[in-house]
Amino acid sequence: MRVIVVLGHVLDPRGIAVNRRAGRVFINRREYILQPADRCALEAALRIKDEMPAEVVVLPRSPLPDDDVLRQALATGADRAVYLAGDGLAAADDAAMARLLAAAVERLGGADLILTGATTLDTGQGQLGLRLAEALGWPHVADAWALKTSDDRLEVVRQEGAGYAVLEAALPVMVTVAPGALEPRYPDGARLINIYRGQGEVAAALETWDAADLVDADALQPLLERRGQEFPPERERGVRASGGLEEMARSAADALRRQVRV
């Protein structure tokens, strides 16, 4: 069985500070980590590999500054990773990445299962996995909490209202994995050293493909344009709710709804 995991990087939130008054994001440490939901997707793939013979191949969800997160995935147990490079790739959005990844999947010779995170930690966008499913013409299951595979079928647990339901699909299928669904494992120390030093078997597992060999330049044109940033008003502490008990309860409920979006 071949399982492809599509994963990406995100600036470690511990290294950034948002200054609402200045309207700026200060980056104290430019350190990237694996997108947490993608890391859960990788864990789901590795658990399949624990259970049955499977090859886990890793592809990037977005243009990467370097191959660091792919190395992390290899250190954690993935068998193979493909770094995508090329002119014009840097601006690619999810629509372009979905086209590029679909071509990469084809070049890999297809797969039985593709896993990726259901949402990104920073931008909160969940479209990449579903766009890729569409580009491949595959069915999808979104926001999985648990997976079970046999040779040709997949069982997925996903949230349904307050409870959880089991869904079943024939392979191949694309599954997006909810952040926090699985407790991810740590990398293996020796694999980590080898992949960073380019030594041992695992070093050969990291390849670089040129995007131009997969799709033409037009396909990489982004649809999305970034137009700026907005900052919430400066936090005002010490605000008291006014009115009688009922009015206070209503303002509290409204505030909670805004925060939690129940």
Binding site: P13, I16, V18, R20, V25, L121, D122, T123, G124, L223, L224, E225, R226, R227, G228, Q229, E230, F231, P232, R257, R258, R261, V262
Partner: peptide
């Protein structure tokens, strides 16, 4: 929202139609 609402990104898709959006409840 970015990082769960620490701040917000503004974006647009000016070229292609239709422009798809999902709207946050509330």
């Amino acid at each position: 929202p970015v990082y769960g609402g620490e701040y917000f990104e503004i974006a647009a898709c000016p070229q292609a139609r239709p422009q798809f959006l999902t709207v946050e409840p509330g």
